Amino acid sequence: MSLWEPDDRGEAVQLTGTDFSGNPVDTRQWAGDVVVVNTWYAACPPCRAEAPDLVAAAADYAAQGVHFIGVNGTDEGGAALAFDRTFDVPYPSISDTDGSAIADLQGHVPVQAVPTTLVLDRQGRVAARILGLADASTLRALIDEALEDPAP
């Protein structure tokens, strides 16, 4: 896990793309809110292991304006949507088979493994990164910390 102090967070991350249902996704619509970004693919064992915790956190933090978004550069629509149904995933995932979303992230923070989970502060900057399986209590502590940051 890596943490960045507010003065070391750099520029805001902006992810855009299309989800697996064909809907546009743009994180700029969540400006001023905390955003959790998770890279995953359907056959990834740690992705499957962490999915219930991510789904629970997305539900628990929704009322506080925390948004979750997945980035999947491996799967076609059928596999990704089956994963979403299996785990009842309530948030969108960008279809990133061209690698553009990961490239956008790489400009801000290294994404060296799948899964990788990022917590973006209210200004859209990377506040924390978890490489590999995201432990539920660690993720929630990072979200809580980001929520304590003042709004932009």
Score class of each variant (00 low, 15 high):
E76P: 08
A141R: 13
G17P: 06
G22M: 08
A101N: 10
L142N: 01
A146F: 03
P24T: 03
V25R: 08
A59I: 08
G99F: 10
G17R: 02
N72K: 09
T16H: 09
T86D: 10
A62C: 10
L105P: 04
V35N: 01
S95I: 00
Q64K: 14
L147W: 04
D7L: 05
V37Y: 04
G73F: 05
A63G: 15
L105H: 07
G132Q: 10
A49F: 03
E145V: 01
D75V: 02
E145Q: 15
A136V: 07
T27G: 12
E145S: 15
A134P: 03
R9S: 13
G65I: 00
A151F: 00
G132K: 07
D7Q: 15
T74D: 04
Q64E: 15
N72V: 07
D88H: 11
Q29M: 12
C44K: 00
A127Y: 01
Q123C: 14
D8M: 08
A56G: 10
V66Q: 12
L54S: 06
A82F: 02
P46Y: 07
R48A: 10
A59K: 15
G77I: 01
L120T: 07
A82G: 11
W40Y: 12
Q14D: 13
G22W: 02
E5G: 09
Y61N: 04
T116E: 10
A79I: 10
V114A: 14
A62P: 05
V25A: 13
T117Y: 02
L105V: 11
T39P: 07
A79N: 14
E11P: 08
T16W: 06
E50W: 04
V111H: 00
F83N: 02
I94M: 06
R9Q: 15
S137A: 13
A136R: 14
A49R: 14
G107S: 14
F83A: 05
V36D: 04
V119I: 14
L142H: 02
D84V: 06
E50L: 04
N72W: 07
L3T: 09
G10R: 04
A49T: 11
P45T: 11
A134Y: 00
D144F: 03
G124N: 05
F87P: 04
A146P: 09
V34W: 00
V111S: 01
T16Q: 14
D7W: 04
Y41N: 10
D149T: 06
A134L: 07
I94K: 03
A58K: 01
P90V: 12
H108S: 12
E148A: 14
P6R: 13
G132T: 07
D84P: 00
E5R: 12
R28C: 05
Q106P: 01
G78W: 03
T74H: 11
E11H: 05
N72G: 09
R140L: 01
A12V: 08
V66K: 10
V66T: 13
R129L: 13
A128P: 08
L133A: 12
A49K: 15
V25G: 09
L15I: 10
C47E: 09
P150F: 03
G99I: 08
Q14C: 14
C44F: 01
H67V: 08
A57I: 01
P110I: 03
A12M: 08
L142S: 02
P52G: 10
D135E: 15
L81S: 13
